[in-house]
Amino acid sequence: MTNLPDPARFAHITDWVFDLDNTLYPHHCNLFSQIDMRMTTYVSQLLDLPREEARALQKELYRQHGTTLRGLMERHQVDPDDFLEKVHDIDYSWIEPDPALGEAIRALPGRKFIFTNGSRSHAERAAERLGVSDHFEDIFDIVAAGLTPKPAKESYDLFVALHRIVGPNAVMFEDIARNLRAPKEIGMTTVLIVPRNFEPTYSEIWERDPDQADAVDYVTDDLKAFLKAVAAR
């Protein structure tokens, strides 16, 4: 594992796949904290629980089912559309536009995709605010995945089949290491995005995934610089 990309190792890549939250837009803008709080509110109101109990349940569902939504669907038969609409009703001005990132993505040869456990509308609004939306062929969201979230293999299978992606010709960028396991197994190059300066700022210990290191080819705290280095070939 190295933090510096060798452009020659990316010369064969034809498909570039990006997670959204804390990957395309940076961790330090803290946008996901709004979604996190809205999920707590949703669980609290749904089950008439105090916020502390609702938050503990929210994180339990996340750990056991991959997403809070999946857990709520399986345990409480919630309407996924209602959940997705309410938890993504947030202030996107927290994202700073990044034209240079858009240019770095545009310069990559081949197709580019967003692959997110969030909703398409959330991805569209975040990408528009960031200034990168025009550079992507498609957004593959939780609905396109049949409401089965990453890291489930079925989600990746649907994505790969839909877009006829050949694993060894693709690279995936993610901020959660376990979400790189399935891409790695089908031959994708994998890049883990971490907070700037490699700061250990994750609030939930289960997002660190130390046992998933062999699923990660590269680690970077600067997506833009990484893409520019790759494209420099």
Results as ranks from 00 to 15, higher is better:
residue 214 D to A: 13
residue 85 E to Q: 10
residue 38 R to Q: 14
residue 64 Q to A: 14
residue 33 S to C: 07
residue 133 S to Q: 12
residue 70 R to M: 11
residue 158 L to G: 12
residue 92 Y to T: 03
residue 184 K to R: 11
residue 12 H to I: 09
residue 199 E to M: 12
residue 6 D to E: 13
residue 140 F to N: 03
residue 168 P to I: 03
residue 5 P to K: 09
residue 28 H to K: 08
residue 66 G to Q: 10
residue 132 V to P: 07
residue 99 P to N: 11
residue 48 D to W: 02
residue 111 R to G: 06
residue 151 P to K: 08
residue 127 A to W: 06
residue 229 A to W: 02
residue 38 R to V: 02
residue 26 P to H: 06
residue 160 V to E: 10
residue 96 E to R: 12
residue 204 E to N: 09
residue 11 A to Q: 13
residue 226 F to K: 04
residue 126 A to T: 02
residue 207 E to I: 00
residue 39 M to Y: 09
residue 185 E to W: 00
residue 230 V to I: 15
residue 67 T to M: 12
residue 18 F to E: 03
residue 191 V to C: 10
residue 2 T to L: 06
residue 80 P to E: 08
residue 39 M to T: 11
residue 121 S to K: 08
residue 217 D to R: 01
residue 199 E to Q: 15
residue 136 F to M: 09
residue 60 E to G: 14
residue 183 P to K: 01
residue 155 S to D: 04
residue 230 V to K: 05
residue 168 P to R: 07
residue 17 V to K: 00
residue 54 A to P: 08
residue 92 Y to A: 04
residue 80 P to S: 07
residue 197 N to R: 14
residue 133 S to P: 00
residue 40 T to Y: 10
residue 153 K to H: 03
residue 32 F to C: 07
residue 221 D to F: 07
residue 13 I to E: 04
residue 51 R to Q: 13
residue 217 D to W: 01
residue 1 M to S: 13
residue 65 H to N: 14
residue 188 M to R: 09
residue 93 S to M: 01
residue 145 A to S: 13
residue 87 V to L: 04
residue 227 L to G: 04
residue 138 D to H: 14
residue 215 A to R: 00
residue 5 P to C: 10
residue 22 N to P: 02
residue 132 V to H: 09
residue 145 A to F: 02
residue 72 L to N: 05
residue 205 I to D: 13
residue 39 M to W: 07
residue 222 D to A: 11
residue 45 Q to T: 14
residue 10 F to T: 06
residue 164 R to N: 15
residue 218 Y to G: 03
residue 149 P to H: 05
residue 118 G to M: 02
residue 122 H to E: 01
residue 3 N to H: 12
residue 99 P to R: 11
residue 97 P to V: 12
residue 190 T to H: 08
residue 70 R to N: 10
residue 226 F to H: 08
residue 19 D to F: 01
residue 61 L to K: 08
residue 23 T to V: 02
residue 82 D to E: 11
residue 71 G to T: 06
residue 230 V to P: 06
residue 129 R to C: 08
residue 224 K to C: 15
residue 74 E to F: 06
residue 72 L to P: 05
residue 207 E to K: 06
residue 83 F to Q: 04
residue 209 D to N: 14
residue 217 D to P: 01
residue 61 L to W: 13
residue 140 F to I: 04
residue 215 A to K: 00
residue 207 E to Q: 09
residue 95 I to V: 11
residue 145 A to H: 01
residue 40 T to G: 15
residue 130 L to Y: 09
residue 14 T to Y: 01
residue 94 W to V: 12
